[in-house]
Design a protein around this nucleic acid. Structure first.
Length: 659
DNA sequence: GTAATATAGCTTTTT
DNA sequence: GCTATATTAC
């Protein structure tokens, strides 16, 4: 088979292994994705396994799409039948399928972090728990951690030793009830609900564990306890579970990921085959050695040393810059130099990696000034904008009006005379009669005691839209909604620049729905909404356009670039001050550093600044310990000389003179 | 009762 | 720098 020819011995072994559990420890750049795809292709082509009986879980939906695409080249259109996606996508699909089977008509609205926070705060105020006693952020964190451990509210109460456990327990319970009433789920319940379903319903478990003859889980080091349980359940029948990962690249501990899942795999499955991929095909020797010397400072590690046949290449270069602007100038001058000296390189071969999203700004400004095309991945997303959130809330409310949270969000936007007093009245009506907010509004609209015409008009419009929605296409629906509710007009009638961009963004949203519509002709507006909710930052990385990419190191997981810049290599930023207190936190930061460094194929630049402006103050900064941990044999340190960007604007010179 | 305006507060990483 | 909340104006 042609797809097996290009593999090395160990990769091949992993690819053609067919029966029983398999653990693949795949170091950075060791050809993991190739192994995964060849393995699936081998199962289908040589072993005759129908693609529909294979489940491949990836970390992002983009990675899932990439696997499907590669597979499409190997086995053709049958790749479409494969079950792929993130744990969350898989969970959602299971819930949908089972809901349909059980005849539930309830909507499945996915609440993102912000919606979750709103609901928690609502619950807290109803329970009379003050923000001072229990900050909602802390409550939210506890609830999400409980979800990561697949705990119900009462299990949480039993096991938690948090000082807030009493309050959290109460909020958690009421929160679950509200979710249920709204037909909504949070991210965590997309994993927990299927587990619960399978525990209560052996026939359902039988269906799925029987269907998935082979299961592959990528990035297994970043699975949490719930995902672990779900995986075990799904694999319980056939036990053909292949997990792939690298403990050194575990960077989601703060989200409940537990490296023990991968480290303990052989205890869970004593008959598991174990394969270690240590040959790196990605990076030049000196880059790899530098990365290895950093990660070797971690105490808690599995024995593993990455090596490569690649040439030495150039040692990573570190420079301490005066401030953020100089750091940005440092990047720009090197990009320009590289483009001249290495004619094969294009803008899309460069990536700027940072610890926190806010770090992108000064770099963006410099790129703009120097007319360098760039794209920021993640960070402040299109879908995070207020007008887009409002617009999506309209669509969510339309699809699932019992989702009181989103209904509430839009009911008086734009202002239509439904203020606090009206809201209170409707709210008590809903409570007294046990109605959802929307049902209460409907009742209020037909009741003449509510002399509010704005309310009646809105409910009328909303009802009409709901009727229309059954026979229109998604983009059409969206356009009608924004039009008839006056939401589009709310922005486009204002003449401020801000309002105009918001109106334009709304048009952009309709455009994106149109694109979705042509791509998935059978899908409805509800499908679009869940896709948007589960879309990850990395999903909007476009490798085909020629522009420099800016992203967090977290988002860069699984990607590779010829030239990598890692900026802000400073104590307090990287490692971040909030993880500096305990050794485990620092070790995770170190793994993150390792992940960043191992993204680089040919050149790696690292930089820090001497003075950083945080808010109003300017702080002196100390070089990150990680720089000191790099074996000096594999690091060039440059003392900053006056930077000389090819084209200096008057403004840039002025800045140089006065800073 | 509702809408516009000032003020504080906040920014780790994300499905 | 930008948004949710509190206050004041209509």
């Amino acid at each position: 088979m042609p797809f097996l020819k290009s593999l090395n011995k160990l990769q091949l072994k992993a690819a053609i292994h067919t029966q029983g559990p398999l653990l693949v420890l795949a170091g950075a750049g060791s050809g993991k994705t190739r192994v995964l795809t060849s393995r699936i292709a081998n199962l289908v082509v040589n072993e005759g396994v129908p693609p529909s009986e294979i489940l491949a879980v990836t970390f992002t939906n983009k990675a899932a799409a990439a696997i499907k695409e590669r597979l499409d080249r190997l086995i053709g259109s049958r790749a479409e039948e494969l079950w792929t996606g993130t744990f969350h996508t898989i969970g959602l699909n299971i819930l949908r399928e089972e809901n349909a089977l059980a005849g539930h008509k309830k909507g499945l609205t996915i609440y993102d972090e912000e919606e979750q926070a709103l609901l928690i705060r609502l619950v807290m105020s109803e329970l009379g728990i003050s923000e001072k006693k229990a900050p909602y952020k802390a409550v939210q964190f506890e609830i999400n951690m409980a979800r990561n451990e697949n705990q119900t509210p009462s299990e949480y109460a039993r096991k938690s030793n948090s000082i807030l456990s009493g309050e959290v327990h109460a909020v958690f319970r009421a929160y679950e009830k509200k979710l249920e009433e709204a037909g909504a789920v949070d991210f965590g319940s997309l994993i927990c609900a299927p587990i619960q379903l399978f525990s209560n319903n052996p026939a359902a478990l039988e269906r799925y564990s029987g269907r998935f003859r082979h299961i592959l889980v990528d990035e297994y080091q970043d699975t949490n306890s719930s995902q672990y349980r779900l995986t075990r359940m799904l694999a319980s029948k056939h036990r053909n579970l292949c997990v792939v990962g690298d403990p050194d690249q575990s960077i989601y501990g703060w989200r409940g990921a537990d490296v023990k899942n991968i480290l303990g795999f052989q205890e869970d499955y004593p008959d598991a085959t174990f394969i270690k991929l240590e040959e790196n095909y990605r990076s030049m020797k000196k880059i790899l050695s530098a990365a290895n010397s950093v990660i070797s400072n971690n105490e808690q590690r599995l024995d593993k040393t990455l090596w490569t046949r690649n040439p030495d290449g150039k040692a990573p270069l570190y420079e301490q810059c005066m401030n953020e602007e100089r750091e940005a100038a440092f990047i720009v001058s090197w990009i320009k130099k590289c483009l001249v000296e290495a004619p094969g390189l294009k803008l899309k071969d460069f990536v700027i990696l940072y610890r926190t999203n806010t770090q992108s700004r000064p770099i963006e400004e410099m790129f703009f000034e120097e007319s360098i095309a760039y794209a920021v991945v993640g960070g402040f997303k299109f879908y995070d904008r207020r007008e887009i959130k409002d617009a999506l809330a309209y669509l969510k409310a339309l699809v699932n009006p019992d989702d009181s949270l989103n209904f509430l969000r839009i009911v008086n936007v734009p202002p239509r005379g439904i203020g606090r007093a009206t809201l209170n009245k409707v709210h008590s009506l809903s409570k007294n009669k046990g109605l959802s907010l929307y049902e209460a509004f409907k009742e209020a609209a037909s009741n003449t005691n509510f002399g509010n015409s704005g309310l009646r008009d809105f409910i009328g419009t909303f009802e009409n839209l709901r009727r229309e929605a059954t026979e229109r296409r998604p983009a059409d629906i969206a356009e009608r909604v924004f039009d008839l509710t006056g939401y589009m007009d709310f922005w486009s009638s204002k003449k401020t620049e801000d309002a105009m961009t918001r109106a334009k963004n709304l048009d952009g949203l309709v455009e994106s729905i149109k694109k979705y519509e042509t791509r998935y002709p059978k899908a409805g507006i509800a499908d679009y909404l869940s896709l948007v909710a589960l879309m990850s930052d990395a999903d909007d990385y476009k490798e085909n356009t020629d522009q420099v990419t800016l992203m967090t190191i977290h988002a860069a997981k699984g990607l590779e670039f010829p030239v990598v810049f890692m900026v802000g290599m400073e104590e307090g930023l990287f490692p971040h001050e909030r993880s500096i207190d305990d050794e485990e936190g620092v070790e995770e930061e170190r793994r993150l550093c390792y992940v960043g460094m191992t993204r680089a194929k040919r050149l790696l630049f690292m930089s820090s600044v001497k003075a950083r402006s945080t808010g109003k103050e300017v702080c002196r900064r100390v070089t990150s310990r990680f720089i000191g941990e790099i074996d000096p044999a594999f690091l060039s340190i440059r003392t900053p000389k006056p930077p000389a960007p090819a084209k200096q604007s008057i403004e840039a010179i002025r800045k140089l003179l006065f800073t």
